[in-house]
Design a protein around this nucleic acid. Structure first.
Lengths: 226, 226
DNA sequence: ATCTTTCCCACCTAGGTGTGAACC
DNA sequence: ATGGTTCACACCTAGGTGGGAAAG
């Protein structure tokens, strides 16, 4: 009785999936969430900060998935693929190619690969809500695990992979979203990018308020009380 | 090549486990972490706050697990079992039985069951580090999912279950730790319990500082600058 | 000089504490 | 009155922002 209750708890999500989901992956579909926001950044060439200890991405990569087998087990991976063979440079308000890429990231183990922390999990789990990669951290140093190592001033294209985890793993899908391309930087180059990040990232609220209160000026006022 | 690299990434943790772990569950062992701390609370009868929106446990239940099959898939569940048939009352500095229990929690779906958020996962995952149940939330209201519903002024004993998730689920182990028994309350009854919670829970630091700075008195000083 | 990276910082978000008064 | 619960609150932990000076 108690055992039945326990197993029923474990299977809860799974059963819900079985009722609703698709039994095969034939109609697998992956959609990028918040594509409008990504496009705003894409239009002016997106930049992502890399730091020694790792920096989150903004915008955050979110996808909604459908068409998996609800009761099969999958892992979701994010792969940061070099978008070209160039090193880039920001001059006169524009990005320009500046020499060959340094191939450091290539062939270096898990270099640019991030495994979603919910992995592995049932198809039902991945499909019940949008999958959010808000914990990915980008770094320029080979570091403690779990972080994605990128080369600064190189362009990357995030790629999503879905792997079916069974007795034999098999790659189910890999999708790229052009909208999410970005150039890795250690400090923002284009102030339009900075402005967008501040505008939409809640964690940068401090700088948004400063601009709102004091649109022309710069710098926060010292406490002027006597 | 890229596919190989990806699958290798997914299997990384798994392979690490295969090398070190035990291929069967014959020698399964589960150990409670921070047992000394739990015992301090147990000696004076532990209490856990329940609130409408859910309250974390302190101490946090942590276990280290060994002896699983590294490449099999398991889920870990926490089950809050009524420790007796009584409702309890704190009078004259002591807990005393006060009438029959209200059987609300029993038979009510997932009432007292919490699934560890890393579930399901490989044996290797559960064994590579202590498993922490710091996200469990205890509530006295039937609520949004994921929270554990308990009856205030009733005594509970946390029980850990390990379920092997396969084509057919099977219960691998259930363990209880006497040290982790507690009485659910909406407000602390025994001030010794409060003192221990403040002493060891970093989130209650504010009250620790107040006592340290002003051991005899009560209340924080207003800013006395002119 | 110039370009890139690093570090510390004030300022946020997000949310976990027990308190004490109010509520029932 | 009594005993249990709820709520707003000040005060923390934990950690995510870009800025700007300094360093390489």
């Amino acid at each position: 009785n108690r055992v039945t209750r326990l197993l029923s708890a474990v299977e809860g999500e799974l059963r819900a999936g079985r009722e609703k989901g698709d039994p095969t992956e034939r109609e697998l579909r992956v959609t990028l969430e918040e594509a409008e926001l990504w496009k705003k950044f894409q239009e002016i060439t997106n930049e992502m900060i890399v730091t020694k200890n790792g920096r989150r991405m903004f915008p955050v990569l979110k996808v909604s998935v459908s068409g998996l087998d609800p009761s099969s087990m999958y892992s979701l991976l994010l792969d940061f693929v070099p978008a070209d063979g160039c090193r880039w440079k920001f001059v006169n308000g524009e990005w320009a190619a500046a020499g060959r890429a340094e191939g450091r990231t290539e062939g270096r183990g898990h270099g640019g690969i991030y495994i979603h922390p919910d992995s592995p999990n049932f198809g039902a789990h991945w499909m019940k809500a949008a999958v959010t990669f808000n914990k990915v951290k980008l770094t320029n140093k080979i570091n403690a695990g779990g972080q994605v190592v990128l080369n600064s001033l190189h362009r990357y294209e995030p790629q999503l992979h879905i792997v079916c985890v069974g007795s034999r793993h098999r790659l189910v899908s890999h999708v790229t979203f052009k909208e999410t391309q970005f150039i890795a930087v250690t400090a923002y180059q284009n102030e339009e990018v900075t402005a967008l990040k501040i505008r939409y990232n809640p964690f940068a609220k401090a700088f948004l308020d400063a601009k709102d209160r004091n649109p022309g000026g710069r710098g926060l006022p010292e406490s002027s009380d006597s």
